[in-house]
Simulated scan of single mutants.
Amino acid sequence: MGLKVGVVGVGYLGQHHARVLSELSDVEMVGVYDVDPGRAEEVASRIRVRAHSSIASLVRECDAVSVVTPTLYHLPVIEEIFSIASPHVFLEKPIADTRENGQRIIDLTKKKNVLLQIGHIERFNPGLEAILESRPRPAYIEAQRLSAFGLRGTDVPVVVDLMIHDIDIILTLVNSPISTMRVVGTPVITPHIDIANAWIEFENGCLAQVLGSRVSMEKLRKFRVFDREGRYFSLNFDTRELSEAKVSLNPGSLPQIERGKRVFEAEEPLKKELRSFVDAIRQGRTVKVSGEDGLRALEVALEVNRLAEESLKRFQQIPSD
């Protein structure tokens, strides 16, 4: 029997959750819900499932639910779901709008004894998986995530919308407490920070430089790691191209550099991500991106944004000539 799953929120991203879940062989899509009934009907008819008129109607039939609403509504939606039933939850990133609300979501899922997976989709990029499998000891990390301006995601700062992906990856790779951060940032089009650059130093000595922008002329998703064993990794998230190098030092001779390049096959990351969630439920194992992972990334992202706003205030106080 298929795992009974529903989707709450079928906007731009939620419609893809509904489509992917409807395509998984061991999943039974019981329907979708959206605050816009017309939108719910449109998506439901496209994948031939039921458009429910309320969250209650949907989750009563679900073993698991995917929540793809605006971040501000994550906690209220989770609270409503758990007032009715106890499904496992896939929750799109970021986990919440505040640290306190993120912790509340984690506490609620633990009380209900259900799985919670956070939608940090880049963890499922095959190039990144290859880097993680190599178990580097990073000394320096450089991440660039640039996008052209669009309306989606502009209700939150760029740090929480885009940069949080790289923050999550960096925290996973480095696995050390943060010692200091320096950040600059500014709004360009929206009232929020639209471009930010952060220097994050960890207690183990690793330094990460992270750039996030949603006002660039072109899209860029680059991630570079230099580790303490003479290895270098450069990943283009979009093309799934991973360049690698290894420096060997031999006494009395010049350094030897071994280079390689791998391009991974295209596979929809969202399908891998939701497949992983379904498998965790069926096999009774832990999820790949836990609520605690999501909260840790959110905490750092919120602090980066706070520091960016502070840097902007200092800049605005400088007298012009």
Rank of each mutant, 00 (worst) to 15 (best):
M1N: 15
G2Y: 05
V5E: 03
G6T: 12
V7K: 10
V10L: 08
G11D: 11
L13Y: 09
G14K: 05
L21K: 04
D26A: 08
D26F: 11
V27D: 05
E28V: 12
M29S: 11
V30N: 06
D34L: 08
E41C: 13
E42P: 03
V43P: 07
V49Q: 04
V49H: 08
R50S: 02
I55W: 11
R60S: 11
E61G: 09
E61T: 09
V65Y: 02
S66F: 02
V68R: 00
T69S: 00
T71P: 03
T71M: 02
L72V: 03
V77Y: 01
I78V: 13
E80Q: 14
S83H: 10
A85H: 13
A85Y: 06
P87I: 11
F90H: 12
L91G: 05
K93S: 12
K93Y: 07
I95Y: 05
D97R: 14
T98H: 09
R99P: 07
E100Y: 06
N101K: 15
Q103F: 10
Q103M: 15
R104N: 13
I105K: 08
I106W: 06
K111P: 02
K111R: 14
V114Y: 11
V114W: 07
L116I: 08
G127P: 04
G127I: 03
E129V: 12
E129C: 06
L132W: 05
E133Q: 08
E133K: 10
S134L: 04
S134E: 09
R135Q: 10
P136L: 01
A143Y: 07
Q144M: 10
R145C: 04
L146P: 00
A148T: 15
F149M: 10
G153H: 14
G153R: 13
P157T: 13
D161W: 07
L162P: 01
D166M: 13
L173N: 08
V174N: 13
P177E: 14
T180L: 15
R182P: 13
V183M: 14
G185A: 03
T186D: 14
I189G: 09
T190Y: 11
H192E: 12
H192V: 04
A196P: 02
I200M: 04
N204H: 03
L211F: 12
G212N: 06
R214M: 12
V215G: 04
S216H: 09
K219A: 08
K222R: 07
K222T: 03
V225M: 01
D227K: 07
R228M: 02
N236H: 01
F237Y: 10
F237N: 03
D238V: 05
T239L: 05
E241V: 05
S243F: 05
S243R: 15
E244D: 00
E244W: 09
A245K: 14
S248F: 13
P255G: 14
K261S: 12
K261A: 04
R262F: 08
A266D: 15
L270Y: 09
K271G: 00
R275P: 00
F277R: 07
I281P: 10
R282N: 13
Q283D: 15
Q283W: 13
G284K: 13
G284I: 11
T286G: 15
T286C: 07
V287A: 10
V289K: 01
G291Q: 03
G294E: 02
G294F: 04
E299Y: 00
V300S: 06
L302Y: 01
E303H: 02
N305R: 01
R306D: 02
A308Q: 01
K313C: 00
K313H: 01
F315S: 05
Q316Y: 13
S320I: 14
